[in-house]
Design a binder for these strands. Structure first.
Lengths: 189, 189
DNA sequence: CCATCGAGTGATTGACCAGTCACTCACATC
DNA sequence: GATGTGAGTGACTGGTCAATCACTCGATGG
């Protein structure tokens, strides 16, 4: 009988490591211009073995995306806990702060941007919707805020992505200052 | 070889036609997964000639993006004119409506999403910043609104992009309804 | 000592794509 | 009707990448 269930097998550990590498690499280059070989190299693995761990490139990207939204949800949950019992606006504010901390290294943020652009691949669009649903419902339930406030929360999150993608906090200009005003943007690494 | 019976045109006219084709094709596939040959085919041109009209793939994409923001600015300007003399909120509202009409066919919207994802290419990032600067300043000057209102205007524009990218108005679900509430999203096509 | 099984890889394949170049053809002008 | 110029293309190159497969190696168990 083979060992079952008790300890994590080596291939499962590898799969996790590959997902970590995938987040970093896909965040940097996006879906279409990141070769599997780049992910493999970062995970210290041969490209061939990646295809043994994941059935194809898409499913690796989806796995990275799922993990990304899992981390986001976890951070939001922590933020909400920091303001437990306060009014909805305050709770959402704390959740936003927790999100800003999480994406300080930019990888999780850029992965979401790239995923949106690659959403013509159905599996990717599904993963994004799944993640966004989780985030939206979490924000609503944990804060108790109304629809409008939650909508605004997500909208400003998107604005935050735009600001970070374009480095607006470094490119001076009146217009850039207007867009970045009051947004808790990540310092670059 | 030139097709028999085809009349030659000026290279400037061709360049415009190629930019039109580029907007449509890049909007569909994004920067990295759209081959020049797809743009050429849509413009009824050989791939080789595209490289005679534009020095490379990037500059074609940038040309498409420049045209995109030009059209956006024009639409916003028209919208502002519709509410001339009214208060800032009303003017911004009209500008938003004009934008929603413009991007009804989705191409100009998706091109912006893809451009954001491809912003690691410096020329593309520059083009996006240029366009966004134009839009932001236009919104501020024509509406007379304060920074916060303009920021909100752009943020909800980004949310609108997200909703359209993911077809949220068609995928039912409470959370989707929350995000799409009150957004004047484009009907498809 | 042999058999088995899972981790992991090298080599390869088949497709695709950005960019180049030498070339042909249409047209205007003299 | 010869000629120069610019429009437009076919054919090719060098490179990249997703995916596959036959293989090795080491551990485990009988």
């Amino acid at each position: 009988m083979t060992k079952r269930g008790a300890t994590l097998s080596t291939s499962d550990a590898r799969r996790d490591a590959v997902v970590d590498a995938a987040i970093a690499e896909f965040a940097q280059g996006g879906y279409h211009s990141t070769p599997i070989s780049a992910v493999a190299a970062r995970a210290d693995i041969s490209p061939a073995y990646v295809f043994k761990l994941f059935p194809g490139k898409v499913s690796l990207f989806v796995a990275a995306l799922d993990r990304c939204y899992e981390l986001v949800a976890h951070a939001l949950s922590n933020g909400a806990a920091r303001a437990d019992g306060e009014d909805p606006g305050k709770i959402l504010y704390e959740m936003g702060g927790a999100y800003a901390e999480l994406i300080a290294d930019r990888d999780l943020l850029m992965l979401q941007v790239h995923a949106q652009s690659a959403a013509d691949t159905p599996e990717i669009a599904d993963a994004v919707r799944r993640g966004l649903a989780k985030v939206t419902e979490l924000a609503r339930e944990r804060s108790g805020a109304g629809g409008e406030q939650v909508q605004r929360f997500i909208a400003y999150g998107q604005l935050c992505h735009l600001i970070a993608t374009l480095d607006l906090d470094e490119h001076a200009g009146d217009w850039a200052a207007v867009l970045a005003a009051g947004i808790r943007h990540p310092g670059k690494n």
